[in-house]
Structures are given as C-alpha cells and as structure tokens.
Design a protein around this nucleic acid. Structure first.
Length: 436
RNA sequence: GCGAAUGUAGCUCAGUUGGUUAGAGCGUCCGGUUGUGGUCCGGAAGGUCAUGGGUUCAAGACCCAUCAUUCGCCCCA
C-alpha cells in the first residue's frame, strides 16, 4: 500500500459500507431485545471529567492507569474519552435525578469508546460497544434476566455457538477486600517462587495470582486461601438463586471461580462470553452487578447490574461463522434511459417508485445503454426499467428481469403499481414518517 | 507498556546472489459499429516499490529511523 497523504491514526478505523451492514444488523437486534424488555436508549458524551472514570473504574485498574485517552482544556481541566459505558450512564442517572423515577431504571446504549492500548486482533483504540444497565433492583432474578437477554442477543446474531458463558461471584466489596488481604498475607514471604508477572500481580491485582499459567504459581495457587471461606452467606445465596434461575431459563453457563473483571466496581455476579477458540483473549462481552457504584459516585446507595459487548468482535465472529446480515441497501430497480425526453420522464418515475418505498437507482450521467445495464448488474438490481425515445413516443416502457434475462414491453401507465406489487414496497406516499 | 514479523497498482501477490523504461491475476474504464448487463476477445488507465535518511558506480531488494499493519505477552470489548 503506497502511503496516502493522510491516513487514520493508529488503531482507529473507518467503518465502511460493507461493515455497516453488520453494524446496522447488530444495532437492530440489540434494539429489539432492549425494547422488548423495557430498556430505553441513552447517549452520554464522548468525554467526561476524568474523575468520573477514575472514581468508578478504580484508579489502579489497567484501564485508568494506562489506557485512558486524556484531554486537557486551556484552563487545565482534565477530561477523558470514555473507555467504557457504565460510568457515564451512572453519572447521568444521578445528575438528572433519575433516582426519583420508579425503579428499576433501564437504559441501553450503542456508542464508540476509546482506549489507548496497543492495537491487536479485536482490540482497537476506538471501538464500539452496545450495553445495557438496570438500576434499582438487587434480586438475582434480575441478574438472570440480564444474562438471558445478552444470551438471546448472541443467539439472534448467530454467534452463540461460538461462545461460552463464564459465570462467577466475587462477593461484596468487603468480601473481596478481605479476600485480597488474605491472598497477600498468604503470598507474602513466598515471592521467590513466583514468576515475574505474579510478583507484579501481587501488588496490582492479587486476584489474578490464582489465574497464572506458570507451574510453580499454580501449585501455590492451589494452596492459597479459598474465596468460599470469605464470601458472605448473603452473596452465596444470591449466586445459588441466580444459577437456579438460569437453569430455569435454559441458559447454559460454565462456573469459573477465576473469573475477575478488570473494573473495580463489580460486586457479586460477574459474567463474560468467551470465544471457544481464543478463550478470554477475545471475550465478546461481559458484565456484572455493581451495587456499590452509585453510592461511590455520590448517589443514594442503589443496586444495579449491566452488560456490554464489543461490536467489532461481534462482527468478526459473525464473519467467521458465515453469518450474512440482511442487505437493506440492495437496489431493487435500476432505471435506464436514453435521450433527453426519456431522461426527464425517468426522473419523475424514479421519484414515484422511491415514494413506494423501493430502492431505486437511475443513471445520472449520459452513459451508453451498455454501460447503464452493466451498472444495473453490478448494483445487483432485480429489475431494470428501460425508457428510450421509442417508448416515450409509444407510451410504453421495457421491464427487464435481471436474473432471468428476459424482458417485455408494457404500457408505462400503471408501472409504479406493477413494480410495487412485484417487489412488495411499503408505500411512504402521503404518509408522514413520524406517523409510522 | 514489552517482544517479534510484515509493508510492491483498488484487492491478492510475483520480483532470481543489489544492475537499464516495475510484473501477473482479479477489479476499474473504453472498445468488439444501430438502444441492453452477467460469458468471451481486444485495448487503456492505475505504482516517486509505506515515509525519510544512509551504504553503493548502481537499491523494490542491504543498513538505520519513523509510520502503519499483524502475531505473542499484559489487559480487555
């Protein structure tokens, strides 16, 4: 590739028309499921005060430590491009007094997000996520419903077979703090037997110590304190009920005691959808309960749970699975024309056909019949309508079936109705689009 | 943030141990005599060989830097 004068910065990409077929389809499926379940769409700004993220996600998490795109205003205010969706939604929830609204509050979003990390397969600096949050209900039945919706979305996108649902509970904030302490106590004095990564983990993310692949670390991990001994009976019961509900809903899951999420605000239920091929490396989405977050951000103590998934990864899995999204852009009719009078007539004809809700393209320039037909072919038009001087004079038009390669000359009178019938258009004539 | 590989036309790639005007297939455009696509045939356009330096009489090929992509690690969507 010879370098163009300008190219997109590292790790960020254009979404080209072919990929938008997938994006549109994913959005449609997400919207469908969210609406059915009472979620309403929200968009939060592309950037927030940096504190919104450091406070919620946790200042020691990787996302905050090294993956945030930060901006600074002339007056020295610090902002950050949003690295994930939940923090902004919760900020908006508190700011707009949604605490006063009847619970639960259910919100969904489809937005770009930004993380400054080294690009890789399925990992970009700008990427898109859809997600949903349910605020104000702590019952495990809600956890089951949220997981069920994400599972159903995967099913409708055709990628469910490629994924496994990993499920775990990480207890309450205090359970977890206690457990971290226990782990650190246990590992203190044993640092010599740990690999370099684990020495680092001990300081930064002790829960990950249990997840190491090194043999020596695994031996130690097997002797380490168990989370079962720390978890509160309340959290345990919550998890037991959740599992029952998931079985009732027929949602298959795998228990994964080592599943930890990278954001600090999670409590109790955590889950991720892992690729069967790449494991956690390419999780398509994940979520969990965050009962402490709203209070942490200055609101009333309120339980909540959410899920978010990456669109780019979803598209990748759809492609690998061979799922082709429907092409709503497909051209139904191509109108070819020859001569000035015919061209004039074809302009109104094209308009009339479009008013019937059909996708219609006509030759704009002055190409030959040959080049017009070839264009019709490449656009994948089902039918071509051909209007020349002779037809204009005779009051006829040629209707060509592009797949069969056959054509007939018919009266131009009633052609719009005929085409609408043939292609099943959805008339937009005399209809205000907002009345739909 | 760490380690490694790659970078030749819109796309997929050739390009011999450095040697004159840089190649193919696909795609694009135009033709194959009147107003008809998908096949076939012919022709054309399109590349300062990612960018910038350096070595050499000579560099797409060798060296360095930069940029981008890809693959591991870390982490995550």
């Amino acid at each position: 590739m010879s370098a163009p004068l300008y190219q997109s910065p590292k790790g960020v990409h254009d979404v080209l028309p072919d990929d938008h077929l997938y994006f549109s389809f994913i959005k449609k499926v997400v919207r469908h499921h969210c609406r059915r379940a009472g979620f309403r769409r929200i968009s939060t700004p592309m950037f927030e005060n940096v504190d919104v993220f450091t406070r919620s996600i946790g200042s020691t998490s990787d996302i905050v430590e090294k993956e945030m795109f930060t901006l600074e205003s002339k007056s020295g205010k610090k902002f950050a491009l949003k690295p994930e969706g939940t923090a902004g939604v919760i900020r908006a929830y508190i700011q707009h007094g949604m605490q006063q609204l009847p619970k639960p509050i259910q919100l969904y979003y489809v937005e770009p997000h930004f993380r400054y990390n080294r690009p890789q397969k399925g990992r970009f600096r700008q990427f898109h996520q859809f997600g949903f949050e349910l605020i104000g209900e702590s019952d495990p039945a809600v956890d089951a419903q949220i997981i069920n919706i994400s599972h159903r979305i995967n099913q409708d996108l055709g990628i469910d077979d490629r994924l496994t649902l990993q499920l775990n509970t990480i207890g309450s904030m205090t359970d977890r703090e206690k457990f971290k302490e226990d782990l650190i106590n246990f590992y203190t004095g044993k640092e010599r037997s740990l690999c370099e990564d684990c020495k680092r983990r001990m300081k930064e993310n002790p829960l990950r110590l249990l997840d190491c692949k090194e043999e020596d670390c695994q031996i130690l991990a097997s002797m380490a304190p168990k989370f079962e001994n720390v978890i509160s009976s309340e959290s345990k019961e919550h998890f037991e009920l959740l599992k029952e509900y998931l079985e009732e809903l027929n949602v298959p899951y795998e228990l994964n005691p080592l599943l930890v999420r990278g954001l600090d605000y999670y409590t109790h239920t955590v889950f991720e959808f892992w690729s069967k091929k790449d494991g956690s490396q390419n999780a398509t989405g994940g979520g969990g309960r965050y009962d402490g977050l709203i209070e942490l951000m200055g609101g009333q103590p309120t339980p909540a749970i959410g899920y978010a998934a990456g669109m780019e990864r979803t598209v990748e899995y759809m492609k690998e699975t061979g799922i082709r999204p429907p092409n709503k852009d497909a051209v139904a009719i191509f109108v070819a024309q020859l001569g000035l009078v015919a061209k004039k007539k074809s302009l109104t004809l094209i308009n009339q056909l479009r008013d019937e809700g059909l996708n219609v393209v006509g030759a704009a320039g002055k190409g030959s019949m040959k080049s017009q037909m070839s264009l019709a072919d490449r656009l994948g038009a089902k039918y071509s309508l051909i209007l020349g001087q002779i037809e204009v004079q005779e009051g006829t038009i040629i209707l060509r079936d592009m797949n069969k390669g056959s054509q007939e000359t018919i009266p131009i009178e009633g052609i719009v109705e005929k085409m609408t019938k043939l292609l099943g258009g959805k008339s937009l004539k005399n209809k205000k689009l907002w009345e739909e």
